[in-house]
């Protein structure tokens, strides 16, 4: 069951992403490496970077989680 506030947040963010994608076609890019000047690159790269970070964080989290607050 998805809380209503999260569903609304997803919808708002999706709208923001769509707006930014549209804006990305309108602005003049000044790329450093070519690919970073493609419209939509920042959205795709940001999403992939977030996925990779979450996957890496989740995998590492199983190993490094230690416990409650360190009173030592």
């Amino acid at each position: 069951m998805i809380p209503a506030i999260l569903r609304r947040a997803v919808l708002v963010l999706a709208a923001v992403v769509a707006l930014l994608l549209g804006a990305d076609f309108l602005v003049a890019h000044h790329p450093y490496f070519g690919i970073d000047g493609l419209p939509g690159f920042a959205l795709a790269f940001g999403g992939l970077a977030a996925l990779a970070t979450l996957a890496l964080g989740a995998a590492a989290g199983r190993l490094i989680a230690r416990g409650a607050f360190d009173d030592d």
Partner: peptide
């Protein structure tokens, strides 16, 4: 272009997390 780029990176990351 810098503003749209940075906002796009952050918004995409937030959407993926949600």
């Amino acid at each position: 272009d810098h503003i749209v780029f940075q906002l796009a990176v952050l918004a995409a990351a937030a959407l993926v997390l949600l």
